[in-house]
């Protein structure tokens, strides 16, 4: 099970990385099976790659998905094996199926679905790792609005060890990047869905952590936001917690609102104006 802090990090950043203990040679065997696979099986991954069911049933994976989606979650139809061969170029930024195929009902203040990305080999920076933008999962962005975006402040790359799994909110902005190496980089992706609303936290929750969690939801920002966005993003985070925590809800308005140290210089008015305008320096 994930901890309170891992859940808070997922709400803030839109992803978490888990590293299940696999059986010896498990990742190597999966990699080899992918390497000799004659064609992409599309959504029929378990049929073409039976060993992947061990990963889907791994206690660490089940625990993490139960934490995020509640008990009784289901694996969605679909899934995809990504092969990034040598000498490719980066994909554009995108959200998976955000504007099509009946996925318009996803909420920015809930965790109703999750995306799993499994890497069967070590992924280095030159192998075209997946790039994600932390905190982007609450932004609904059409492909059209993303077309001029390239390098973004705070973007991170999935340079992970073999066997690592990146679990993300379904709306996280991501892309495969260019593979500059001479090695093929594989990734197996699945989507999962919540089937019921939680009556209580489905993770390893301790009520004593609530004040710390609240502080993190109020103050941690993986990317620079405009003044409007601080307000809306903050509210959406707390609503997300409340939507998945059942009985462990927290008040929308923080008791510590506007508290904290006095400004060192410039005065509160100046500081507020600069925050409002998103001004730096």
């Amino acid at each position: 099970m994930l901890s309170d802090h891992q859940i808070a990090s997922f709400i803030i950043n839109g992803y978490t990385i888990i590293e299940p203990e696999h059986a010896p040679n498990y990742n190597e065997d999966i990699f080899e099976a992918l390497r000799v696979m004659p064609e992409n099986p599309g959504e029929h991954i378990p049929e073409a790659l039976p060993a992947i069911t061990d990963l889907l049933g791994h206690p660490t994976v089940v625990g993490a998905l139960t934490s995020l989606l509640g008990p009784g979650y289901t694996r969605d139809k679909g899934g995809h094996i990504h092969m990034n061969p040598p000498h490719t170029r980066a994909q554009p930024w995108h959200q998976d199926e955000r504007f099509g195929r009946g996925h318009q009902d996803r909420d920015g203040d809930h965790i109703r679905q999750a995306m799993l990305m499994y890497y069967p080999q070590d992924v280095t920076e030159d192998m075209g790792p997946t790039v994600i933008l932390p905190g982007s999962h609450r932004r609904v962005a059409s492909p059209e609005s993303m077309v001029t975006l390239v390098n973004l402040r705070g973007q991170i790359f999935s340079t992970v060890k073999a066997g690592a799994i990146v679990l993300t909110h379904p709306d996280i902005w991501h892309a495969g990047t260019g593979n500059r190496s001479d090695r093929v980089r594989y990734m197996v992706k699945f989507h999962f869905s919540r089937t019921q609303q939680s009556a209580e936290p489905s993770w390893n929750h301790d009520p004593a952590n609530l004040s710390e969690i609240r502080l993190r939801l109020d103050s941690e920002h993986p990317s620079t936001l405009s003044r409007n966005e601080y307000e809306t993003d903050h509210a959406a985070r707390v609503r997300t917690w409340n939507n998945i925590a059942g009985s462990a809800k927290m008040p929308l308005k923080s008791e510590a609102h506007l508290g904290g140290p006095w400004p060192v210089s410039g005065g509160a008015t100046t500081a507020s104006r600069r925050r409002r305008d998103g001004v730096t320096g």
Binding site: G108, D109, R139, V140, A141, S145, L149, E229, T232, D233
Partner: peptide
């Protein structure tokens, strides 16, 4: 929308 984070 007052409860939605905008485009980037």
């Amino acid at each position: 929308h007052p409860e939605a984070v905008g485009v980037y």
